[in-house]
Amino acid sequence: MIKLRNFFKSFGPKNVLRSLDLDIDSGEIVVIKGKNGSGKTTLLKALSTLEKPDDYDLAEIDEFDLVSNSEEIRSRVGFLSHNPPFYPELSGLENLDFWLDLHPAEYGLDYASEMLAKVGLIMFKDDMAGNYSRGMIQRLGFAIAIAHSPTTLLLDEPFTGLDDEGSEIIEQHLLRLKEDGCSILLSSHDDISFADRTLELDQGALK
């Protein structure tokens, strides 16, 4: 569950997010659209705690304050960047296992393999991630975003570089996560047919 009231973020003199109000319920898929530079990525990064807001009246995920409870927020949020970062010297399995090891819960290699199987990467799990194609990196990034069972999922253009099968896999996962009560906010330039709502971000403000 995401709640924002009067949320501001700027970079120097440029106001990227201006007096933003946003509510996303559990089990809701919301798409955020907007031109390049409209503030979509900044909003997702701010919600993931990667960027600090300048000012706000309310900024909560699952009733935890975004700034004062950032560690708790990070354990609840799954984030997929537009260009997912990864260690090219590690295999896909090692990349995912490293991420899971940073969480308090014990997951193990079998669980990591299972997650890679779910995104169609099991055949390539021991290949170095540096040899993955763009679409495979996107699948790995998605597996990393959902592997720790987040209650809130933030996806920045998640279908970039994916083939039809990859897009279908991610759609099915998003629908399953929605049923499990996960709040999902994703940015996209395309229409997303399975979304509950679509919002338009224009020059840092929601229309």
């Binding site: 993931s48 705690t49 990667l50 560690e71 708790e72 990070r74 354990s75 949020v77 984030f79 960047s81 970062p85 990864f86 260690y87 991420w99 940073l102 969480h103 308090p104 990393i144």
Partner: peptide
């Protein structure tokens, strides 16, 4: 990858 590290709980 510093972003990945910063996102870890």
């Amino acid at each position: 990858t510093i972003e990945t590290l910063k996102l870890a709980p």
